[in-house]
Amino acid sequence: MIELILIAILSLLAQLFLPWWSLAIVAFSICFWRSQRAGGAFLQGFVGVGVVWLGYALLVHTQTDGIFIGRMSELLFKTNTNVLPLLVVTLLSGLVGGLAGLSGFLVKKATAN
């Protein structure tokens, strides 16, 4: 759990200043440092990063009237819905975060003693 929280907080901070893929470095490092199991590392990376993207996107969505998110959904996915952009944002960032976390754990195992 502490790994997940660390990933969320640090990836949030990193992305305020660095390119989007800095989230992968954060997930990799935290899981390299602390993770115990492969499945756990993937999950920590996935949820830690995904929650930040979803949360920020939801914040934007609720602060504006939502028409724009529907338009973007139409533009990107050819269907006007608010759910799809939020879902894709979560899955996409989660996948990158999860894979980065898993990489971190596996690299540690491979390089340990």
């Binding site: 992305q15 305020l16 390119p19 989007w20 893929w21 993207w53 920020y56 996107a57 914040l59 934007v60 969505h61 973007m72 990107l76 952009p85 894709v88 944002v89 996409l92 960032s93 990158v96």
Partner: peptide, 12 residues
């Protein structure tokens, strides 16, 4: 896709 969808720098 990722920079466009990122809530930090993308269309959001």
């Amino acid at each position: 896709f990722a920079p466009l969808l990122s809530p930090f720098v993308g269309f959001w």
